[in-house]
């Protein structure tokens, strides 16, 4: 399931995350998981001042959970959701949302996606600094949010009928 290159380097990856607060692993999974995620039934959720996207519940298998837990050095629960962002989808930072700080775990399946389409995951610290994570196919992203807030950039008409699909779990320290 997980690319063997990474399975043999868990201690190095753990050290990298601990030092940098982020980790990006390309070509992370085998094709079968990807097919499973792309075939999920997504349900549209829309609240114009906060978000527009489609969502589905998703459980990661134990191999992936264990792998991530070892890198983070703590056990994580299987509380993940799968999101699909197409044209006109977005999330907006809102005073009504209670942002929990901690670590974001993202498995990105954004196939054939150009950054000009929008849909990037953006972390902002409230003082003008930001970290933008461009969509990338079959990639694991671990990101320590610290006191950053997250939004998903609006997906524009250049995306046409393409969907930006990713799995997301957010965990407190």
């Amino acid at each position: 399931m997980i690319n063997k290159i990474y399975l043999n380097k868990i201690s190095d990856l753990k050290e990298h995350f601990s030092k940098n607060g982020s980790l990006i692993l390309h070509e992370f999974l085998s094709e079968d998981i990807k097919k499973e995620v792309l075939n999920l039934k997504f349900i549209k959720e829309y609240s114009p001042m906060k978000y527009s996207y489609s969502k589905s519940n998703f459980k990661l298998n134990n191999e992936i959970l264990d792998f991530i837990s070892k890198i983070l050095g703590k056990e994580i629960n299987n509380n993940f959701e799968s999101f699909s962002f197409g044209w006109k989808d977005y999330t907006i930072l809102s005073d009504e949302i209670n942002y929990e700080y901690g670590i974001d775990i993202i498995i990105d399946f954004a196939d054939d996606w150009d950054s000009n389409f929008g849909g990037s995951i953006v972390y902002v610290d409230g003082s003008g600094n930001y970290t933008k994570i461009e969509p990338s196919s079959n990639t694991l992203i671990l990101f320590d949010k610290k006191d950053n807030k997250r939004f998903i950039q609006y997906v524009n008409n250049f995306a046409k009928d393409k969907k930006r699909i990713f799995i997301l779990g957010s965990f407190k320290y």
Binding site: P48, M49, Y90, I92, N116, G118, Y154, N156, N157, F158
Partner: peptide, 10 residues
């Protein structure tokens, strides 16, 4: 211009 927007707010 093409792809520019302003989302819902008050």
């Amino acid at each position: 211009q093409n792809s520019d927007y302003l989302l819902c707010h008050d």
